[in-house]
Design a protein around this nucleic acid. Structure first.
Length: 361
DNA sequence: AACAGTCTCAACCGCCTCGAG
DNA sequence: TCTCGAGGCGGTTGAGACTGT
């Protein structure tokens, strides 16, 4: 009622933010905190819409925002969650610490979607494209391992950020490391070994995760529709089998995946109400639970080198203490998940093993 | 060297939800 | 209970950098 409209009747600036504008915004928010976006432009001396300030801060300047190349672990999570939730970028972002929905959305549209298509997987349904007769066979990953995927990484790792303001020596992200902190040549490209390892690992995981995500989506759909029955591929005693094998690595993986997605808990643990604080001790931020279970990597110096623009900007010119949520305080929490999945996900394609593996295909 | 095409991603747009008044 | 602004969200755009010819 009494509130004044936002951004009305003012000659507001649009387009890319300048370094000076960033400094003003960072300085103001650091001093007064977030919130009250409507008033921030005026108080901070910016000719910007409050909404624009909020977006600039949350997507780019916020100290805890992680910027740079997505790891294969993060890619797995994005694909899996996209399969079950669709384009719910904010939901996906909640499972990827320090990543913004906008960044995930961009990464999906420019990288993951294309790669899934190349593999014959529909990025919308996460099911094999009609033209691909055998899309889930891992061998098909050879077609993108060193070509498309490698090309993407090579290109993106060497490409400067487009709309990033003139660095003025402030941004150290891509000077000695790739976007995800991987060591790079002086020209910004990944070393051949790193590139090969990364692309192969990513492609292998993409194949596995895409197939797994498809199954998960089917189960989720069936669950949501209340139609999960003996006809569902996960059924036929599968839940019981998994749950009775607590010390089995397969069961452990399933549990981890289920824990990862609270919605799937009702599928695997139908006697439980869908509850954000289930008996598993999992909530919407269940990824942190995973961290507790499987430990944090303490060899993430590379990731710790992943400073960010806002942080550097603030530290460079504004003599104020940086927020306590410093990048250096947080190592990459995804690594453990990746290693665990890599170590245990092979059963998904292991058709020679027991029935557990086949349920996922 | 110049140009066109491609790619990336920050920023914008418009709609929706929530909650203050 | 209703109104409407703030904030959140997903889709889209376009500037700028890279690549190929």
């Amino acid at each position: 009622m009494s509130r004044k409209p936002c951004c009305v009747g003012e000659a507001l600036k649009k387009g890319a933010w300048t370094t000076e504008e960033d400094k003003k915004l960072i300085s103001y928010i650091h001093e007064h905190g977030e919130g009250g976006w409507r008033d921030i432009p005026q108080k901070a001396g910016l000719k910007r819409c409050g909404k624009s300030c909020r977006l600039r801060w949350t997507n780019y300047l916020k100290p805890e925002v992680k910027r740079g190349e997505f790891s294969s672990e993060e890619e797995q999570i994005i694909i899996m969650l996209h399969a079950s939730r669709g384009n719910k970028w904010s939901v996906i972002a909640r499972h990827l610490p320090r990543r913004t929905d906008n960044e995930i959305k961009n990464y999906w549209n420019t990288h993951l979607k294309k790669r899934l298509i190349e593999q014959g997987i529909d990025p919308v349904t996460h099911k094999p494209l009609a033209s691909n007769t055998n899309p889930t066979v891992p061998e098909n990953l050879h077609s993108l391992d060193a070509s498309s995927s490698d090309k993407q990484y090579s290109r993106s790792s060497s490409m400067p950020s487009m709309s990033r303001p003139p660095s003025s020596g402030l941004n150290t992200v891509s000077e000695t490391t790739s976007k995800d902190g991987t060591p790079v040549h002086e020209d910004g490209s990944l070393t051949p070994k790193k590139r090969l390892k990364k692309s192969c690992s990513t492609s292998r995981l993409l194949n596995k995760v895409a197939a797994k995500a498809t199954s998960m989506k089917e189960v989720l759909s069936a669950s949501m529709e209340g139609s999960l029955s003996a006809n569902t591929s996960f059924s036929n005693g599968f839940f019981e089998q998994v749950r009775n094998e607590e010390d089995n690595s397969n069961a452990s993986l399933i549990n981890t995946i289920v824990e990862f997605d609270p919605f799937l808990q009702t599928t695997f643990y139908p006697e439980h109400e869908m509850n954000t604080t289930s008996d598993l001790g999992i909530d919407q931020d269940c990824f942190s639970h995973f961290l507790e279970n499987f430990g944090r990597d303490d060899h993430n110096e590379e990731h710790n080198m992943n400073h960010n623009y806002g942080h550097d900007l603030l530290m460079s010119d504004v003599s104020q203490e940086v927020s306590s949520t410093s990048v250096d305080d947080q190592d990459n929490p995804i690594e453990g998940w990746s290693n665990y999945l890599l170590d245990h996900a092979d059963f998904i394609y292991d058709t020679d093993s027991d029935s557990l593996g086949n349920h996922f295909i």
